[in-house]
Design a protein around this nucleic acid. Structure first.
Lengths: 258, 258
DNA sequence: CAGTGGTCTAGACCACATT
DNA sequence: ATGTGGTCTAGACCACTGC
């Protein structure tokens, strides 16, 4: 691996030059996914800098999400996460009729073993943005279903659903196991036939809690998708707030040109 | 502002405790958007730690995107970027017929002054993923239009369009100014009436070049939207690759339940 | 000019992984 | 036991901002 030298005349500070050397070694393919970077000790020797300077170079690459540090082992070029494509028909009725909730249908297609944990069910007053989307009055309470999805035991997504109690009360939606086809199948059984969904998509850096639950290393943003489900009467019956590791997902949407 | 003290018995390292104190001051509203954090000197005095320890606490908040450091001035709680909502009808024909390209229609609605710069037009062989989306043969060349969008002179988005030369050649699409209604209006004039778009959405940390062009501070991810336009014959006529500062956008999509 | 953050040095001890 | 990254100290000089 070719590392080059620090040019003290160069305007860029040494730590940035070191980071650039490592970056270009990755771009040239001399350092590929899974490879170990030179250790901090090796970098300080090679460049004749203090350890903190070498660390700062590595810190840059970490916040860019290009490398991951493992305590006691070394710093490694990040493995590209296998990408999951979420097609725009993922909530099609045919899947519900086949007894598959959306997540199970996807996992099936991707050939991974799906599971769900950290299920929490609660009755509470919703946050303001959820209340607006559900068109509820100020003090109205909702059913809250929060859970974490895993594929082959690796956390994939955390999701929280909010449903008006008038809709959810007395249904399996308030049980840990909602039965075949998931929440949406139960909604349709109780007369709320679904018409369409509106998804609002944005991205940001995760909170400390999200980093923990999704087991995210540094420098990985999350995609936030807030989905509102409307029944054929135009009534919003569910708001689902999902947070996923961004680089692992591509969301696909179809838009008519009208 | 209430800062608390470091508990040396606490399992968390001091720098993390300091970061948590500052975070919770923000959460409690004692430190709100635009406020200046205590300086490094104040933190080292208050907590009796070395300066690097105080810096590390601030570094945490920076990579989380919650604060921004300004050399010589201080560290400030990040101003929430004014959010632009991109509605699912943003490519409706009615806008093109009114002579407005999608970006101008949005800017109009948001009440900001739109502009476009860094326009570059080229003929080249496209990257592999674009070639696949446009269903081109290996050596086929495309028109490449790259530009940067600004609102009130602040960079908002960088975009690159790829169109088969068979579609673009001899049209204003290869000129700097594409005329009223933009690329899509020109496509429809030349017989490619648009039927629908497919958008693929993901997010990641920006490259160094994107950070520069979008003038992004540390800790801000980007949303990447790749849109493919299909005409009524089902032929893909354009691929447009856009990169935006993520927290400044909410993308909205309507999905039929079918 | 004083105050701020940016960078760097040369050490130290600790926690974790591997052999 | 050795090598790795994680955290910390106590200084130093520089560059930028604002008075």
């Amino acid at each position: 691996m070719q590392l080059g030298e620090i040019d003290r005349q160069d305007g860029r500070p040494p730590y940035r030059q070191i980071a650039d050397h490592l970056r270009s070694a990755m771009d040239r393919g001399e350092l590929t996914a899974g490879d170990k970077l030179p250790s901090e000790a090796e970098l300080t020797r090679h460049y004749s800098v203090a350890r903190m300077t070498a660390r700062q170079a590595i810190q840059e690459l970490r916040t860019e999400g290009r490398v991951v540090a493992e305590h006691g082992r070394g710093v490694f070029v990040r493995m590209p996460a296998p990408v999951r494509r979420l097609a725009s028909d993922r909530f099609a009725r045919k899947h519900r009729e086949a007894g598959q909730a959306a997540f199970l249908a996807e996992a099936d297609k991707a050939g991974v073993r799906p599971s769900v944990d950290q299920i929490e069910i609660d009755r509470a007053t919703p946050p303001a943005d959820v209340r607006e989307r559900l068109r509820l009055s100020d003090d109205e309470r909702v059913a809250v279903r929060s859970r974490r999805y895993l594929a082959d035991d690796r956390p994939i997504e955390v999701a929280t659903s909010f449903l008006p109690l008038t809709v959810a009360e007395g249904t399996p939606i308030l049980e840990a196991n909602t039965g075949p086809g998931g929440i949406y199948a139960r909604l349709e059984e109780t007369g709320h036939v679904l018409d369409h969904f509106v998804e609002e998509v944005t991205a940001r850096m995760p909170t400390a809690d999200e980093r923990r639950r999704l087991e995210l290393p540094d420098g990985v943003p999350v995609l936030v998708v807030v989905r509102t489900a409307y029944d054929t009467a135009g009534v919003p019956v569910e708001v689902c707030d999902t947070v996923k590791a961004a680089p692992a997902y591509v969301l696909e949407y179809d838009i008519p040109a009208r």
